[in-house]
Design a binder for these strands. Structure first.
Lengths: 161, 161
DNA sequence: CGGTCTATATATAAGTT
DNA sequence: TAACTTATATATAGACC
């Protein structure tokens, strides 16, 4: 019944919403549990498409948010995890995500390309180029002793005038 | 081996810390997944006892935090920036996100490039290529429509020297 | 400690109503 | 459409390095 699900954008709207609701609830629950178990200072905020905010925080969302802003308003000092990439592999992951979003957008035709000045072929090429780029990065990552100064013809085929 | 655990404060300090670390990681992962699966706007912030902040947010922690504060401290109405953009501009936005992540990673030097098989020059080239791609898209978008609307966001520059 | 390894608890994707 | 069910995927407690 339950199938393994790829962590990428769910294109089907109703399915996406169902997953959003379930996982949003789970996330808040997990946050509460973390706070209860460890007396942790933690907050989670989730916005629905409609703009409704779902949140939880201990001791208080605003306090945590203020603390965060105080710590990060001008000085970036993150020692642990953050939204940023931290290695070549992570760069590949980021590119992969972007690529997949593009691919999804194209496949699902969420874009009304007819009304845009951008043709579907161009976008498709872009997605392909990103995929290529990702593959290249992965390959480079894999081959430890490969050439150091090799030039990379990135997006060369896109230059069509 | 694994026993069901009551959701209440763990008194044993070392055990509490272990649980904190594991669950904190899980929470961040779940938040990421929610964002990836549903293109959700969500953020999580956790502080360790030592005062270190662990966080994740999409599109950006600060944005979400600001949105939360706006919603909960006044009756400001900020509409339509998180999702719902349609067309080429959205593609550009996706590219922008990826580009900014790369740029940030490069600037902050959170990469230990020495230990990777990927040189900073290569990554820099990739970032440049993405910027180029974005510019191309923007230009294409602007040309046919004869510059009616400026809806393509300006990027944070990468300053590659 | 900080990471790895299971066995088990929990979350959750589909199905069902 | 949401609530409930159920089979499975995933998270993670405890043990061990």
């Amino acid at each position: 019944m339950r199938r393994k699900v790829e962590i990428k954008l769910i294109n089907e709207k109703s399915k996406r919403h169902t997953t959003f609701t379930k996982r949003r609830q789970g996330l808040v629950k997990k946050t509460k549990e973390l706070c209860d178990l460890c007396d942790a200072v933690a907050a989670v905020i989730v916005f629905s498409d409609a703009g409704n905010a779902f949140f939880f925080g201990h001791p208080d969302v605003e306090e945590i948010v203020d603390q965060y802003l105080a710590d990060h308003s001008s000085t970036l000092t993150t020692e642990g995890e953050s939204s940023g990439a931290s290695g070549a592999a992570e760069v590949v992951v980021e590119l992969t995500k972007a690529e997949e979003r593009l691919g999804e957008a194209i496949r699902s035709r969420r874009f009304d390309f007819e009304d845009e000045d951008l043709g579907i072929c161009e976008v498709d090429e872009i997605a392909a180029a990103m995929k290529e780029l990702k593959t290249m990065l992965a390959a480079r990552k894999a081959s430890t002793t490969a050439a150091a100064e090799e030039q990379i013809p990135v997006f060369g085929e896109l230059n069509r005038g």
